[in-house]
Design a protein around this nucleic acid. Structure first.
Lengths: 347, 347
DNA sequence: CTGTTAGCGCCTTCAG
DNA sequence: CTGAAGGCGCTAACAG
């Protein structure tokens, strides 16, 4: 039952110096006598002093709170949990502390937590935006001069940097992987050609074929909805071709599951003879199926990168010149045959 | 590029009232004229005012920061991620915000983050302690009158409430489950009888047998190290008995994996005929094997419970009378046969 | 119901 | 190297 919380003035008194001296010690200033510094530190320990960062932040210009906000659209999904871990690592070792909030894909909630974090004076924000997030949602905070970095998804038009996965490189790797397993008839299935993401992934697929010296086959690009059902539909079409593929690169993992379903219903076991690579789109990551190989960013690495980027901006005093979007390299994760892919081991 | 951040005084001026009036509006006091209140709110929106909670906290007695600390020993483990999600839910809807830090089982780091959180004036702390945590580690914060709740593991001697799983009820359920599947020769394998946890789990097992009217068999309690290797060892012993068991309740999931390994090496497929129930000890949760049924607390539920408990203490003004440890009910989770158990669905 | 006056704990001049 | 003021943004008493 400490009565009134102990303050700099208390410890100044007890150490027989002035408050400013104490303050200097607190900031590790070199202007203070070594002996004095030691004494002050001892007294602080004795009295159980705890630094009041709130007061400091109040006094200082602003936003030197050393707290960074992290908002995530689905913490239940292991991918994002790891993302947060990555962020936490660098944030912690930089002497910052992390606010974490989960939005569960709810934009309203997202706005609430961002507002709340602002009230607490976060020095910067890392956000994996909820689905329907628009530039407008981020306008207030970016205009306040608080550095913002988006990860995983990006928000077109927002004045902030972002980290997204390198889609083309991912599907390219997927193709190379399948080729190295001996496949030559490789299809690209799922998704509709009206999104940027689709274009990118398709492009990587094409490049992969090309660099393997495989001629492109129109019929091997099979669009469908980017869902499990879409995957089923697409693979059934594929298998009816006169020369059916022996492997597929799937637009995302939902599609990949559908493909597996479809294969099984034809008595074909995915992963044994028939290669299936799913683009781990994060969304369905938690339902990974064993027989599936997956292309995905390393979430922890992405988190670390995001945090570094943000800290750089914070230290630079202002937000980056303009919105920069960086593509993060992807990693092929072999299925592990039992349980689920050993994601942690790739970290 | 807002110049000087807008303050209560700015909005007071703009609204033609005094700062205190604004302050009252901010706190939703009923002492202010409805029209005035409305006007103030409008002006706040127009000027893009953001409440400075740090300043408020500074002025107010103390610790009304509305931020709660959450420290977790392994966020990489899906269990703890879900725990944090549970906490976040209630914390958020109570208008608090959550500091999250991961200690990766490192006590030193744990002390650092707790210190850091203290500097930021957390109103309360929920902690899933790192392995070697002692009451001493928590002494400073509890003595400062900050409510602390431990979850998952408890810290003997610490002046705080804790939430742990109901070990006995868990193994009891495990036995009942196996009995309902027709098993009568059920062994309890793994672990050494020198820990409290072992005692509790063994007791539940005994009770389970008893309530099923099955006589206890000395030979069916097989101690071993609480590891995968221990599981292999234990099951091999079990199978050599003249009347070998047809099912096992395992001390923890590491042991359970070992049991599965051992069974397979004998050509027995676990889960088909031979029942295996592992106590999901959290530690190895991420490596769940499909063929395994598991007894475990629902992590989100535990998180919610912890947060509620903490908030109650915060609102009560002071920490609970004394350390109360509450057992959380466990849930049997059927293996799902593919991928890993659909944990989220039990939430 | 609204305005005035003090600080909360800290950091920054600015002198000694 | 150290001491004395002043103020960050807000709220808690009091006055009006």
């Amino acid at each position: 039952m400490t009565k009134g919380r102990v303050t700099v003035i208390d410890i100044a008194k007890a150490a027989g110096v002035s408050k400013s001296t104490v303050s200097l010690v607190l900031q590790g200033s070199p202007l203070v006598n070594e002996a004095t510094r030691a004494k002050v530190n001892v007294v602080m320990r004795e009295l159980g002093y705890v630094y009041n960062r709130g007061a400091a932040t109040l006094r200082q210009t602003t936003a030197k709170s050393r707290i960074i906000g992290m908002v995530v659209n689905d913490l239940t999904n292991g991918f994002f949990a790891e993302l947060a871990v990555g962020v936490d690592m660098v944030v912690q070792s930089a002497g910052f502390v992390q606010f974490l909030a989960n939005t569960a894909e709810n934009v309203d909630r997202q706005q609430e937590v961002i507002a709340s974090m602002r009230e607490h004076g976060i020095s910067g924000l890392i956000i994996s935006p909820a689905r329907a997030t628009t530039a407008l949602d981020l306008k207030a905070i970016t205009e306040a001069g608080i550095p913002v970095v988006t990860a995983v998804r990006n928000v077109p038009g927002a004045k902030c940097s972002s980290l997204v996965s390198d889609n083309a490189a991912g599907t390219l790797q997927a193709v190379s992987h399948l080729v190295s397993l001996g496949h030559r008839r490789i299809a690209f299935v799922g998704g509709y050609p009206d999104t940027m993401v689709f274009e990118e992934r398709l492009r990587g697929y094409m490049e992969g074929l090309k660099s393997a010296g495989i001629a492109r086959q129109e019929a091997y690009v099979i669009a469908s909805s980017a869902s499990r059902a879409g995957g089923v539909e697409a693979i059934s079409k594929a298998l009816k071709l006169s020369e059916p593929p022996t492997a597929t690169v799937c637009f995302n993992d939902a599609v990949a599951f559908g493909v597996c379903d479809g294969l099984r219903s034809q008595g074909i076991e995915p992963g044994r003879g028939f290669g299936v690579v799913g683009f781990d789109d994060v969304i369905e990551a938690k339902a990974a199926v064993p027989a599936l190989t997956t292309i995905s960013v390393d979430p922890q690495a992405m988190g670390r990168k995001a945090a570094q980027l943000l800290l750089r901006q914070i230290n630079a005093g202002k937000a980056e010149a303009e919105a920069v979007t960086t593509a993060v390299r992807l990693v092929v994760r072999e299925s592990c045959g039992q349980g689920f892919p050993a994601r942690a081991e790739t970290a």
